[in-house]
């Protein structure tokens, strides 16, 4: 499980950007995830897809929180999509699981 490559790819779906994150999000590259989310929020709503995230640490969670706060202040749509078991566990630990809008898939996220 832990051998999946770390990656963060933004896909413009037209007025909505899907940021797909894979691998183990930790201090070594969580800044990239943060930058990708904030850049995408510059001109559209954003969904962060976390299905293939096998690990996330507090710096990764901080990137998600910052995106959430930025989206709120600029009135953009923002949600976490298909968060993996590992991501959910850490969100619960941080008591953030009820804070983020969570969606099963990108269609549901875009429909809001």
């Amino acid at each position: 499980m832990s051998d999946s490559e770390n990656a963060c790819i933004s896909e413009d779906l037209g007025g909505y950007v899907l940021v797909r994150v894979c691998g183990e999000v930790d201090l070594s590259w969580s800044q990239q995830v943060r930058d990708a989310i904030l850049a995408a929020l510059g001109n559209s709503g954003v969904g962060v897809e976390l299905a293939r995230v096998t690990y996330i640490d507090s710096s990764g969670i901080a990137a998600l929180v910052e995106g959430f706060q930025r989206a709120r202040s600029s009135g953009r749509r923002y949600g976490l999509i298909a968060a993996s078991r590992q991501v959910l566990a850490v969100l619960q630990l941080a008591r953030l699981d009820k804070v983020f809008p969570m969606f099963a898939d990108v269609e549901a996220a875009r429909a809001t």
Binding site: A62, V65, E66, F68, V90, L96
Partner: peptide, 12 residues
């Protein structure tokens, strides 16, 4: 209980 980035390591 407050939502903000950062400072989560120690609580974990």
């Amino acid at each position: 209980s407050e939502c903000r980035p950062g400072g989560l390591g120690l609580p974990f």
